[in-house]
Design a protein around this nucleic acid. Structure first.
Length: 299
DNA sequence: GGCAGTCAAGTACGC
DNA sequence: GCGTACTTGACTGCC
Protein backbone atom coordinates (compact mmCIF):
# COMPACT_ATOMS: atom_id res chain seq x y z
CA UNK A 1 0.00 0.00 0.00
CA UNK A 2 1.24 3.41 -1.01
CA UNK A 3 -0.34 6.68 0.09
CA UNK A 4 -0.49 9.68 -2.22
CA UNK A 5 -2.03 13.05 -2.97
CA UNK A 6 -2.74 14.98 -6.15
CA UNK A 7 -0.85 17.62 -8.07
CA UNK A 8 0.02 20.27 -5.48
CA UNK A 9 2.33 20.54 -2.50
CA UNK A 10 2.19 23.69 -0.41
CA UNK A 11 5.09 22.83 1.84
CA UNK A 12 7.71 22.65 -0.88
CA UNK A 13 9.10 26.04 -1.85
CA UNK A 14 8.02 25.82 -5.44
CA UNK A 15 4.93 26.87 -7.22
CA UNK A 16 4.14 24.82 -10.27
CA UNK A 17 1.18 25.15 -12.62
CA UNK A 18 0.99 28.91 -12.57
CA UNK A 19 -1.96 30.23 -14.48
CA UNK A 20 -1.09 30.36 -18.14
CA UNK A 21 -3.79 31.62 -20.41
CA UNK A 22 -4.20 31.03 -24.07
CA UNK A 23 -4.17 34.79 -24.65
CA UNK A 24 -0.65 35.01 -23.25
CA UNK A 25 0.68 32.01 -25.15
CA UNK A 26 4.21 32.18 -26.46
CA UNK A 27 6.84 29.54 -27.00
CA UNK A 28 9.14 31.32 -24.57
CA UNK A 29 6.48 31.34 -21.91
CA UNK A 30 5.68 27.70 -22.53
CA UNK A 31 9.32 26.68 -22.12
CA UNK A 32 9.67 28.69 -18.92
CA UNK A 33 6.47 27.24 -17.53
CA UNK A 34 7.29 23.63 -18.30
CA UNK A 35 10.81 24.06 -16.95
CA UNK A 36 9.38 25.44 -13.73
CA UNK A 37 6.74 22.72 -13.53
CA UNK A 38 9.32 19.98 -13.93
CA UNK A 39 11.60 21.49 -11.31
CA UNK A 40 8.69 21.66 -8.90
CA UNK A 41 7.73 18.11 -9.67
CA UNK A 42 11.25 16.96 -8.82
CA UNK A 43 11.16 18.82 -5.53
CA UNK A 44 7.77 17.42 -4.66
CA UNK A 45 8.84 13.86 -5.42
CA UNK A 46 11.94 14.36 -3.28
CA UNK A 47 9.75 15.64 -0.44
CA UNK A 48 7.46 12.66 -0.91
CA UNK A 49 10.31 10.18 -0.86
CA UNK A 50 11.59 11.59 2.42
CA UNK A 51 8.14 11.27 3.90
CA UNK A 52 7.29 7.79 2.66
CA UNK A 53 4.63 9.17 0.31
CA UNK A 54 5.13 6.91 -2.67
CA UNK A 55 2.11 7.75 -4.77
CA UNK A 56 1.56 11.02 -6.60
CA UNK A 57 -0.81 12.40 -9.20
CA UNK A 58 0.90 14.57 -11.78
CA UNK A 59 -1.03 17.63 -12.87
CA UNK A 60 -2.45 17.56 -16.38
CA UNK A 61 -1.15 21.12 -16.76
CA UNK A 62 2.46 20.07 -16.62
CA UNK A 63 2.73 20.99 -20.30
CA UNK A 64 0.01 23.60 -20.80
CA UNK A 65 -1.82 23.56 -24.14
CA UNK A 66 0.11 20.50 -25.25
CA UNK A 67 -2.96 19.10 -27.00
CA UNK A 68 -4.07 22.48 -28.33
CA UNK A 69 -3.40 23.41 -31.97
CA UNK A 70 -1.59 26.54 -30.78
CA UNK A 71 1.23 24.41 -29.41
CA UNK A 72 3.68 23.37 -32.11
CA UNK A 73 6.66 23.18 -29.84
CA UNK A 74 8.56 19.89 -29.55
CA UNK A 75 8.35 19.70 -25.77
CA UNK A 76 9.10 16.00 -25.75
CA UNK A 77 12.42 16.55 -27.46
CA UNK A 78 13.30 19.68 -25.54
CA UNK A 79 12.61 18.23 -22.11
CA UNK A 80 13.37 14.58 -22.80
CA UNK A 81 16.22 14.34 -20.30
CA UNK A 82 14.18 16.03 -17.55
CA UNK A 83 11.28 13.64 -18.00
CA UNK A 84 13.58 10.62 -18.13
CA UNK A 85 15.31 11.73 -14.96
CA UNK A 86 11.98 12.05 -13.13
CA UNK A 87 11.00 8.61 -14.40
CA UNK A 88 14.25 7.14 -13.09
CA UNK A 89 13.61 8.67 -9.70
CA UNK A 90 10.12 7.20 -9.60
CA UNK A 91 11.41 3.74 -10.48
CA UNK A 92 14.35 3.89 -8.12
CA UNK A 93 12.16 4.50 -5.09
CA UNK A 94 9.35 2.23 -6.16
CA UNK A 95 6.95 5.14 -6.46
CA UNK A 96 3.77 5.23 -8.46
CA UNK A 97 2.26 7.93 -10.65
CA UNK A 98 -1.24 8.65 -11.81
CA UNK A 99 -2.86 11.34 -13.92
CA UNK A 100 -6.45 12.52 -14.08
CA UNK A 101 -7.52 14.50 -17.15
CA UNK A 102 -10.25 16.94 -16.23
CA UNK A 103 -13.94 17.23 -16.97
CA UNK A 104 -13.52 18.22 -20.62
CA UNK A 105 -12.52 14.72 -21.54
CA UNK A 106 -15.76 13.04 -22.53
CA UNK A 107 -15.20 10.00 -24.69
CA UNK A 108 -18.88 9.21 -24.97
CA UNK A 109 -19.93 12.70 -26.05
CA UNK A 110 -22.40 13.02 -28.87
CA UNK A 111 -20.37 15.83 -30.39
CA UNK A 112 -17.55 14.61 -32.59
CA UNK A 113 -15.29 17.60 -31.87
CA UNK A 114 -15.54 16.89 -28.14
CA UNK A 115 -14.51 13.30 -28.77
CA UNK A 116 -11.64 14.40 -31.00
CA UNK A 117 -10.38 16.86 -28.39
CA UNK A 118 -10.72 14.21 -25.71
CA UNK A 119 -8.67 11.70 -27.68
CA UNK A 120 -5.99 14.32 -28.35
CA UNK A 121 -5.86 15.09 -24.65
CA UNK A 122 -5.55 11.42 -23.76
CA UNK A 123 -2.75 11.02 -26.30
CA UNK A 124 -0.97 13.91 -24.58
CA UNK A 125 -1.34 12.24 -21.18
CA UNK A 126 0.09 9.02 -22.61
CA UNK A 127 2.99 11.03 -24.05
CA UNK A 128 3.84 12.33 -20.58
CA UNK A 129 3.98 8.76 -19.29
CA UNK A 130 6.08 7.73 -22.28
CA UNK A 131 8.43 10.67 -21.77
CA UNK A 132 9.15 9.43 -18.26
CA UNK A 133 9.73 5.95 -19.72
CA UNK A 134 7.53 4.37 -17.10
CA UNK A 135 5.64 1.10 -17.29
CA UNK A 136 1.87 0.73 -17.40
CA UNK A 137 1.49 0.35 -13.66
CA UNK A 138 1.16 4.12 -13.84
CA UNK A 139 -2.41 4.99 -14.75
CA UNK A 140 -4.52 7.69 -16.34
CA UNK A 141 -7.96 7.75 -14.80
CA UNK A 142 -11.11 8.92 -16.50
CA UNK A 143 -14.86 8.83 -16.08
CA UNK A 144 -17.39 7.26 -18.40
CA UNK A 145 -18.80 10.70 -19.23
CA UNK A 146 -22.25 12.12 -19.81
CA UNK A 147 -25.59 10.36 -19.63
CA UNK A 148 -27.54 12.13 -22.41
CA UNK A 149 -30.80 10.78 -21.09
CA UNK A 150 -29.96 7.16 -21.87
CA UNK A 151 -27.44 5.48 -19.66
CA UNK A 152 -27.37 2.17 -21.50
CA UNK A 153 -26.75 3.77 -24.88
CA UNK A 154 -24.20 6.17 -23.40
CA UNK A 155 -22.28 3.36 -21.78
CA UNK A 156 -22.31 1.45 -25.07
CA UNK A 157 -20.97 4.55 -26.81
CA UNK A 158 -18.14 4.72 -24.30
CA UNK A 159 -17.29 1.07 -24.92
CA UNK A 160 -17.21 1.62 -28.68
CA UNK A 161 -14.99 4.71 -28.42
CA UNK A 162 -12.69 3.06 -25.92
CA UNK A 163 -12.18 0.02 -28.11
CA UNK A 164 -11.28 2.26 -31.03
CA UNK A 165 -8.54 4.09 -29.11
CA UNK A 166 -4.95 3.42 -30.10
CA UNK A 167 -3.30 0.74 -27.97
CA UNK A 168 -0.60 3.24 -26.89
CA UNK A 169 -3.31 5.24 -25.14
CA UNK A 170 -5.59 2.45 -24.01
CA UNK A 171 -2.92 0.62 -22.04
CA UNK A 172 -2.68 3.48 -19.51
CA UNK A 173 -6.37 3.99 -18.89
CA UNK A 174 -8.48 3.09 -15.90
CA UNK A 175 -12.11 3.90 -15.25
CA UNK A 176 -13.35 5.68 -12.14
CA UNK A 177 -16.85 5.77 -10.68
CA UNK A 178 -18.24 9.32 -10.50
CA UNK A 179 -20.38 11.06 -7.90
CA UNK A 180 -23.56 11.55 -9.92
CA UNK A 181 -24.08 9.28 -12.90
CA UNK A 182 -21.95 6.18 -13.29
CA UNK A 183 -21.48 4.22 -10.09
CA UNK A 184 -19.05 1.39 -9.45
CA UNK A 185 -21.46 -1.17 -10.88
CA UNK A 186 -21.54 0.72 -14.18
CA UNK A 187 -17.76 0.84 -14.24
CA UNK A 188 -17.52 -2.89 -13.57
CA UNK A 189 -20.01 -3.46 -16.37
CA UNK A 190 -17.93 -1.42 -18.82
CA UNK A 191 -14.80 -3.14 -17.56
CA UNK A 192 -16.34 -6.52 -18.32
CA UNK A 193 -16.87 -5.44 -21.91
CA UNK A 194 -13.51 -3.75 -22.46
CA UNK A 195 -11.00 -5.15 -20.00
CA UNK A 196 -10.29 -1.68 -18.60
CA UNK A 197 -9.27 -1.78 -14.91
CA UNK A 198 -11.58 -0.01 -12.48
CA UNK A 199 -10.37 2.63 -10.06
CA UNK A 200 -12.65 2.68 -7.03
CA UNK A 201 -13.48 6.08 -5.59
CA UNK A 202 -14.62 5.49 -2.02
CA UNK A 203 -16.17 8.93 -1.61
CA UNK A 204 -18.02 8.90 -4.91
CA UNK A 205 -19.35 5.50 -3.94
CA UNK A 206 -20.85 7.10 -0.85
CA UNK A 207 -22.58 9.77 -2.89
CA UNK A 208 -23.54 7.55 -5.79
CA UNK A 209 -23.76 4.07 -4.33
CA UNK A 210 -24.34 0.80 -6.13
CA UNK A 211 -26.23 -2.28 -5.04
CA UNK A 212 -22.97 -4.06 -4.36
CA UNK A 213 -21.79 -4.44 -0.80
CA UNK A 214 -18.53 -2.71 0.02
CA UNK A 215 -16.45 -5.81 0.74
CA UNK A 216 -17.70 -7.34 -2.48
CA UNK A 217 -16.86 -4.15 -4.36
CA UNK A 218 -13.22 -4.34 -3.30
CA UNK A 219 -13.09 -7.93 -4.49
CA UNK A 220 -14.69 -7.26 -7.87
CA UNK A 221 -12.60 -4.16 -8.48
CA UNK A 222 -9.39 -6.01 -7.71
CA UNK A 223 -10.19 -8.62 -10.35
CA UNK A 224 -10.17 -5.96 -13.07
CA UNK A 225 -6.46 -5.21 -12.48
CA UNK A 226 -4.07 -7.58 -14.22
CA UNK A 227 -0.51 -8.22 -13.02
CA UNK A 228 0.93 -5.74 -15.53
CA UNK A 229 -1.42 -3.03 -14.24
CA UNK A 230 -0.01 -3.26 -10.72
CA UNK A 231 -1.99 -2.89 -7.51
CA UNK A 232 -5.46 -1.40 -7.74
CA UNK A 233 -5.55 2.35 -7.20
CA UNK A 234 -8.24 3.76 -4.97
CA UNK A 235 -9.34 7.38 -4.47
CA UNK A 236 -10.19 8.32 -0.93
CA UNK A 237 -11.56 11.53 0.57
CA UNK A 238 -13.17 12.22 3.90
CA UNK A 239 -16.81 13.19 4.07
CA UNK A 240 -17.14 16.84 3.31
CA UNK A 241 -18.64 18.91 6.10
CA UNK A 242 -22.30 19.61 5.63
CA UNK A 243 -22.30 23.01 7.34
CA UNK A 244 -22.47 26.04 5.12
CA UNK A 245 -19.67 27.98 6.81
CA UNK A 246 -16.77 28.29 4.45
CA UNK A 247 -14.11 26.67 6.53
CA UNK A 248 -11.20 26.20 4.19
CA UNK A 249 -9.14 24.06 6.53
CA UNK A 250 -10.32 20.76 5.15
CA UNK A 251 -8.15 17.97 6.46
CA UNK A 252 -8.25 14.22 6.69
CA UNK A 253 -10.57 12.68 9.27
CA UNK A 254 -8.34 9.99 10.72
CA UNK A 255 -11.18 8.09 12.30
CA UNK A 256 -12.86 7.82 8.94
CA UNK A 257 -9.59 6.88 7.29
CA UNK A 258 -9.02 4.17 9.88
CA UNK A 259 -12.47 2.82 9.02
CA UNK A 260 -11.49 2.82 5.37
CA UNK A 261 -8.35 0.82 6.18
CA UNK A 262 -10.46 -1.66 8.10
CA UNK A 263 -13.15 -1.87 5.41
CA UNK A 264 -10.64 -2.51 2.67
CA UNK A 265 -8.72 -5.24 4.48
CA UNK A 266 -7.26 -7.65 3.39
CA UNK A 267 -6.98 -6.18 -0.10
CA UNK A 268 -3.82 -4.33 -0.96
CA UNK A 269 -4.03 -1.11 -2.96
CA UNK A 270 -2.51 2.31 -3.50
CA UNK A 271 -4.56 5.10 -1.99
CA UNK A 272 -4.87 8.59 -3.46
CA UNK A 273 -6.09 11.11 -0.90
CA UNK A 274 -8.23 13.75 -2.53
CA UNK A 275 -8.16 16.21 0.31
CA UNK A 276 -7.68 19.97 0.28
CA UNK A 277 -4.58 20.19 2.40
CA UNK A 278 -2.85 17.61 0.22
CA UNK A 279 0.54 16.61 1.63
CA UNK A 280 -0.39 17.51 5.19
CA UNK A 281 -3.18 14.95 5.21
CA UNK A 282 -0.92 12.50 3.41
CA UNK A 283 1.62 12.77 6.24
CA UNK A 284 -1.07 12.00 8.79
CA UNK A 285 -2.39 9.11 6.73
CA UNK A 286 1.10 7.67 6.34
CA UNK A 287 1.61 7.81 10.08
CA UNK A 288 -1.55 5.79 10.54
CA UNK A 289 -1.05 3.41 7.63
CA UNK A 290 2.49 2.59 8.73
CA UNK A 291 0.99 0.34 11.36
CA UNK A 292 -0.84 -1.56 8.63
CA UNK A 293 0.96 -4.64 7.32
CA UNK A 294 0.06 -3.64 3.77
CA UNK A 295 2.03 -0.41 3.93
CA UNK A 296 5.03 -0.25 1.58
CA UNK A 297 8.36 1.11 2.75
CA UNK A 298 10.65 2.30 -0.05
CA UNK A 299 14.28 1.54 -0.70
C1' DG B 1 -4.09 47.56 -2.52
C1' DG B 2 -8.38 45.14 -2.74
C1' DC B 3 -11.98 42.90 -4.94
C1' DA B 4 -14.71 40.72 -8.47
C1' DG B 5 -14.63 38.63 -12.82
C1' DT B 6 -12.39 35.38 -15.69
C1' DC B 7 -10.02 31.35 -17.39
C1' DA B 8 -9.29 26.08 -23.75
C1' DA B 9 -12.01 22.49 -23.28
C1' DG B 10 -18.32 19.79 -20.94
C1' DT B 11 -22.76 18.29 -19.23
C1' DA B 12 -27.09 18.64 -16.52
C1' DC B 13 -30.89 21.09 -15.64
C1' DG B 14 -34.35 24.60 -15.23
C1' DC B 15 -36.67 28.05 -17.69
C1' DG C 1 -32.16 27.24 -27.10
C1' DC C 2 -29.99 29.85 -23.37
C1' DG C 3 -27.96 30.77 -18.95
C1' DT C 4 -26.25 28.95 -14.77
C1' DA C 5 -24.29 25.55 -11.55
C1' DC C 6 -20.76 22.38 -10.78
C1' DT C 7 -15.58 23.29 -8.91
C1' DT C 8 -10.42 25.32 -7.90
C1' DG C 9 -7.21 28.60 -7.45
C1' DA C 10 -4.84 32.12 -9.16
C1' DC C 11 -4.29 35.64 -12.43
C1' DT C 12 -6.11 40.07 -14.53
C1' DG C 13 -8.12 44.17 -14.74
C1' DC C 14 -10.75 47.66 -12.78
C1' DC C 15 -11.60 50.80 -9.09
Amino acid sequence: MRIGYPCINRTVECQGDKTFRLKNYSEKRLIETVKNNLECLEKILEYNRKNQILFFRISSDIVPFASHPICEFDWQGHFSEDFRSIGRFVKKFNMRISMHPDQFIVLNSKRSEVVENSVRELVYHAEIMDAMELDIEQKIQLHIGGMYGDKTASKARFVKRYVELPEEVKKWLVLENDDRIYNIEDCLDVSGRTGVPVLFDYFHDNMNPSEIELSETFKLVKKTWKAKDGLPMVDYSSQRKKDKSKSHAESIDLRDFRRFLDDSRPHDMDVMLEIKDKEKSALKAVRLARKDSRFLING
